[in-house]
């Protein structure tokens, strides 16, 4: 996995909540047995018209957001199916960072990202950043005034800089385990296998309940 430290690029807005993985990559593209070729089909049903031409109404088809590297969206992004193809599509399109808001509803946290999706991102070098709802509202408003503006996401410093009119630098929190994995581009399997002896010892006493 390619390490991720600092990302500078165009920030594109997708102003929808609960974007599900069926939307991110529809099922007809799940039949591939390879790990590549998903980027061109990202958001397929929104992105293309019936005749296969790009739908000018869809935000990512706007010239201003061509080549965007950062996506800002609304809460519960990536809900639904566990398909990692959704993250492959996002990464292969060119996004390295996704920003979404978390909010409190009667003391309960409504997260920016669905659980399995967030995990899958971390394993594919895509950074998911949760900000407050007002911070995300602010980014949407700023992009509306400056379509095509750039942003810099600095993972070691945990900061986002929006390159427009006196924008404040935004700090973000991140799970230290995910941060380390992204910074080093770590392969989980290699890390787990350093505990081989412990796994083998565990297997000696653990009952899997499988009949012999």
């Amino acid at each position: 996995m390619e390490p991720l430290k600092t990302v500078r690029g165009v920030i594109a807005p997708l102003d929808r909540a609960n974007v599900d993985t069926d939307q991110i990559i529809p099922k007809q593209f799940l039949k591939s047995i390879s790990r590549t070729g998903f980027g061109e089909n990202l958001f397929f049903d929104w992105r293309y018209r019936a005749d296969g031409s790009p739908d000018p109404e869809f935000i990512l088809n706007d010239e201003a957001f061509r080549g965007a590297a950062i996506l800002v969206t609304r809460h519960n992004f990536g809900c639904g199916s566990s398909r990692e193809h959704a993250v492959w599509a996002i990464a292969q399109y060119g996004f390295r960072v996704i920003i979404a808001p978390q909010r409190d509803e009667n003391g309960n946290r409504i997260p920016g990202f669905a659980d399995i999706f967030r995990n899958n991102c971390a394993k594919n070098g895509v950074l998911t950043v949760e900000l407050s709802e007002s911070q995300v509202d602010g980014i949407f408003a700023l992009i509306e005034r400056h379509p095509g503006m750039q942003a810099t996401v600095d993972l070691p410093a945990q900061q986002i800089t929006l390159h427009a009119e006196n924008s404040p630098v935004i700090s973000f929190d991140i799970d230290p385990a995910i941060k380390e994995r992204l910074l080093k581009g770590l392969d989980d399997i290699t890390k787990t296998l350093t505990h081989e002896a412990q796994i083998t010892a565990f297997e000696h006493t653990h009952d899997t309940q499988m009949p012999a």
Binding site: S82, R83, N119, N120
Partner: peptide
Amino acid sequence: GIGTSEVEHVLATQCLPQA
């Protein structure tokens, strides 16, 4: 449910690192 990277991880190690 898990993603495909985790499927590979379980195939190789029969374990998963989990929060």
